[in-house]
Simulated scan of single mutants.
Amino acid sequence: MFSEPVQPTRATQKRRTAARVVEAAAQLFTEHGFQDTTVRRIAARAGVSVGAVMAVGDKESLLGLVYDQAIADRIPAPPAPVEGGRAPDAAEYLAHYFDPFLALFAENDELARAYFRTLARGRPENAALGTLRTLTEDNLKAALVNAGMPEVRARLGAQVMFAGYLGELMLLATRTTDPEQTAARLASTARFIAAQEGRDR
């Protein structure tokens, strides 16, 4: 007995449309830059209406979604604890955790600055940043705990590390520093945080 093909639900269609819109926006931002990309162009590239694009977000919101997804795709997993041997080097993991993100921002300076401006405005559409923060802090905390740090202190260390990362990104956006200095300062912060493991509680 043949069954009728299952039609995608409205929610599924909405997710697929949103994914097409974000992908089209990513392509156009890369090809034409942020300023020269319009919502109309994004709609044409995605094969949807302007209204469908705006249902996903305006141009700034779409740039945020593009970067948030690109960052999430590059997040490295924390090192697993070593049984019966040396604990994984938390300082090394924390020091280089943000390297893929810094490389991403270095790929397109103009887009990176536009993304930073979006973050600085603190718009509601930046909710994805909260998700990224949670995932990042969970990974950093896990690395510290796996290296032997108490969980409460590891959580605080992860929060400090993420806050430092955001601060360094803002300095990069205003061109008051460069990627090498940023990497060096993040490494110093990582070593400082990891060194707290042996201190009194």
Rank of each mutant, 00 (worst) to 15 (best):
S61W: 09
L62K: 09
L62D: 06
L63I: 02
G64M: 03
Y67I: 09
Y67G: 02
D68G: 12
D68E: 14
A70P: 14
A70W: 03
I71V: 15
A72P: 11
D73G: 15
D73P: 15
R74S: 14
R74F: 14
I75G: 13
P76T: 12
A77D: 15
P78I: 09
P78R: 01
P79D: 07
P79K: 14
A80T: 11
P81Y: 11
P81Q: 02
E83Q: 10
P88F: 03
P88L: 02
D89R: 08
D89T: 04
A91S: 07
A91N: 07
A91P: 12
E92S: 13
E92W: 08
L94V: 04
L94R: 03
L94M: 04
A95Y: 01
H96P: 04
H96N: 13
H96E: 09
H96M: 04
H96R: 15
Y97M: 00
Y97F: 14
F98K: 03
F98P: 13
D99L: 07
D99S: 00
P100L: 08
F101P: 08
L102A: 09
L102H: 12
A103P: 09
E107P: 10
N108W: 00
D109I: 01
A114W: 01
A114Q: 04
Y115Q: 10
Y115N: 13
R117E: 11
R117A: 15
T118D: 11
R121C: 05
R121V: 06
R121G: 06
P124V: 04
E125T: 14
N126I: 07
A128E: 02
A128Y: 02
L129Y: 13
T131R: 04
L132E: 00
T134L: 13
T136W: 07
D138N: 00
L140D: 03
L144E: 01
L144H: 09
A147H: 01
P150L: 01
R153E: 11
R153M: 08
A154E: 11
A154P: 01
R155Q: 13
L156V: 15
L156W: 09
L156M: 15
Q159W: 05
Q159A: 14
V160G: 01
M161I: 05
Y165I: 00
G167S: 07
G167T: 00
L169R: 00
